[in-house]
C-alpha cells in the first residue's frame, strides 16, 4: 500500500510548490514510483512548467468524467531514475478556475469520494507515493486533499500572520481529521529559526527549517535541488522530511 502526502500552507507564497517538486524527486531518487498532483485549483502552478504538458485535467477527475490514469503524464527524464514520476495538473484556464470556485457542497462531497478513489487506483497501479500540492488556507479543495492524506506537511514561514493562522488550521482541521503532520519553517532568517519566541506553540512538530537563500528561488525554475545539489540546505531539509514521514507512518 502506498502513502499519500498533502503539502499545505496557511497562506500563499510559503514555498509549497518548490517543496512538493523536490519532495517528489527525493522519493524517486530512492527508487519510488511517485505521482505528483497540482491541486491548487484556484491558482494552478503547473509545477513551474518544468514537466511535460497534458490535455487532461484533475478537474475532470474530481468531476467523475476522467480516469486518473488518463489525467497523469510520465516525466521520462534521467533525473527521475531510479524511480518513476507521473504528474497531473489542474486546469489553468480562467473559465475552469471560475467554475471550480462555484462548486456546491454536494459536488465537493462527491469530489472527496473521487479523491479517495484516485488514491486506491494509483496505489493499485503501482504508485508508492502520492504527493498533493494543495491550495493555501482553508477551502473545500485544500481540505479535501488533507482529508485524503496519510500525512500533511505544513509549509510556513516565520511571520506572525502565517503562524497564528497555522495554529488555527492545525487545531481546527488537521487534529479533528486525525492527521499526522509536520511543519516546515521556510525562508528563515534567524540562526535558530525553530525557536522564534512567542510565534510557535512548542507542541507543534517542526520537522525542518530552511534558511532564506536567494538561490532556492532562482534555481528552482530550472532545476530540482534534491537532484542537482543534494547537499544544499534546502535539499537536506527535504530528505529530513522523507525520513520523518517514514518513521511516523511505520510506527502506526
Amino acid at each position: 500500500m502506498g502513502i499519500s502526502i498533502a503539502v499545505h500552507s496557511s497562506k500563499g507564497g510559503s514555498g509549497k510548490t518548490s517543496f512538493s517538486i523536490n519532495l517528489a524527486f527525493a522519493y524517486t531518487s530512492a527508487g519510488k514510483s511517485v505521482c505528483l498532483l497540482d491541486a491548487d485549483f484556484k491558482a494552478p502552478s503547473l509545477f513551474n512548467y518544468m514537466f511535460p504538458d497534458s490535455d487532461r485535467w484533475l478537474n475532470d477527475v474530481l468531476d467523475g468524467k476522467c480516469d486518473i490514469m488518463d489525467a497523469i503524464v510520465e516525466v521520462a527524464d534521467d533525473t527521475v531514475a531510479p524511480g518513476k514520476l507521473y504528474v497531473g495538473y489542474c486546469n489553468p484556464d480562467i473559465d475552469a478556475v471560475r467554475e471550480m470556485s462555484g462548486k456546491d457542497r454536494k459536488w465537493q462531497s462527491k469530489a472527496l469520494q473521487n479523491i479517495m478513489g484516485v488514491k486506491k487506483k494509483l496505489f493499485s497501479s503501482g504508485i508508492d507515493v502520492l504527493i498533493i500540492d494543495t491550495g493555501p488556507g482553508v477551502d473545500f479543495t485544500s481540505v479535501n486533499a488533507i482529508a485524503a492524506a496519510d500525512y500533511v506537511i505544513m509549509v510556513t514561514k516565520p511571520a506572525r500572520s502565517h503562524q497564528k493562522y497555522m495554529e488555527q488550521i492545525i487545531d481546527g482541521i488537521y487534529i479533528p481529521l486525525g492527521k499526522d503532520y509536520g511543519v516546515i519553517m521556510n525562508k528563515c532568517h534567524d540562526n535558530k529559526p525553530i525557536a522564534i519566541p512567542g510565534l510557535v506553540d512548542p507542541d507543534i512538530p517542526v520537522v525542518a527549517s530552511i534558511p532564506c537563500l536567494c538561490d532556492i528561488a532562482t534555481r528552482s525554475d530550472s532545476e530540482v535541488l534534491t537532484v542537482a545539489d543534494p547537499e544544499h540546505p534546502f535539499s537536506k531539509a527535504v530528505f529530513t522530511v522523507v525520513r520523518t514521514i517514514e518513521d511516523c507512518l511505520s510506527n502506526k
Binding site: 457542497r105 462531497s109 473545500f140 481540505v143 482529508a147 481546527g172 479533528p176 481529521l177 486525525g178
Partner: peptide, 21 residues
C-alpha cells in the same frame, strides 16, 4: 439533513467523524 462534505464532517462529534471519515 445536508450532504456530508468535508466542512460538515469537521462539525460532527468525534465518534461520528471517525466513522464518517
Amino acid at each position: 439533513f445536508d450532504v456530508l462534505d468535508v466542512m460538515t464532517l469537521l462539525t460532527l462529534p468525534d465518534h461520528l467523524r471517525a466513522t464518517a471519515t
